[in-house]
Simulated assay, not measured.
Amino acid sequence: MAASWPRDDTRESFPEDDYRAYLISRNPPPIVYHSCGVRLKRLRVRFDRAVDAIDRMLHRVIEALARSKARR
């Protein structure tokens, strides 16, 4: 036996129809999709910068040690 639901005939336009009309008429922002490759490239740049900063710091420490030994 099929269930029948009483329908209110006074409400012919459904709210979801209004929402659909809004979605069609709006001007959506462009979809920007960053692939995994772009994320990996950015991560690699950050990693390279961090390695360069550590390298510079170690070179300064080595130069400071060399200067202090040369003074003795």
Rank of each mutant, 00 (worst) to 15 (best):
D8I: 12
R26E: 07
D48T: 02
P15I: 07
G37A: 09
T10C: 07
D55R: 07
A64M: 01
N27Y: 05
R7T: 04
R46Q: 04
V38P: 00
S35Y: 11
A70P: 01
Y19T: 11
L65F: 03
S13K: 12
D9T: 10
P29I: 00
P15L: 11
L40Y: 01
I24R: 15
T10R: 13
I24G: 06
A50C: 09
I54Q: 12
G37L: 06
R46D: 08
Y33G: 00
P29Q: 13
P30G: 05
Y33R: 14
R56W: 03
D52S: 10
E16I: 12
Y22G: 04
E16F: 02
R20T: 05
R11V: 15
L23I: 12
H34G: 00
R11C: 03
M1I: 13
W5F: 15
V61S: 02
L65S: 01
D8P: 03
R42K: 09
R11I: 09
R56T: 11
P6D: 12
L58I: 06
L40N: 05
L23P: 00
F47G: 05
M57G: 09
H59V: 01
E12I: 04
S68D: 06
N27M: 07
D8N: 15
V38C: 02
K41P: 00
I62F: 02
I54S: 08
P29C: 00
N27R: 10
L43W: 00
I54A: 15
A2I: 02
S13V: 15
R72H: 04
F47C: 06
A2P: 10
R67H: 06
E63A: 10
V45E: 12
H34P: 00
D17F: 11
R49Q: 07
V61Q: 03
L40E: 11
H59I: 02
A3Q: 10
D18M: 15
P6M: 05
S25W: 08
A3V: 14
L43Y: 03
A50N: 13
I54G: 02
Y19N: 03
Y33V: 13
L65M: 07
Y33A: 10
A2N: 06
H34Y: 15
R56Y: 03
T10M: 07
A21G: 08
R20V: 02
R71Q: 12
P6A: 11
E12S: 12
A64W: 01
S68L: 07
R44N: 05
V38K: 02
Y33K: 10
A3L: 11
A66F: 01
Y19H: 07
D8A: 06
K69G: 03
S13H: 12
R49N: 14
R26D: 02
R67Q: 05
A66M: 05
H59F: 00
R67A: 05
H59T: 01
S25V: 13
F14P: 05
V51P: 00
D18T: 14
R46A: 04
K69T: 07
N27S: 14
A64I: 06
I31D: 13
A3T: 11
D48R: 07
S68N: 09
L23H: 09
R11K: 14
D18Y: 15
L43E: 02
P29S: 12
D48A: 03
I62M: 01
A53I: 01
D55N: 04
R71G: 02
I24Y: 04
S4E: 15
I31E: 14
L58F: 05
R7A: 09
R60S: 08
E63P: 00
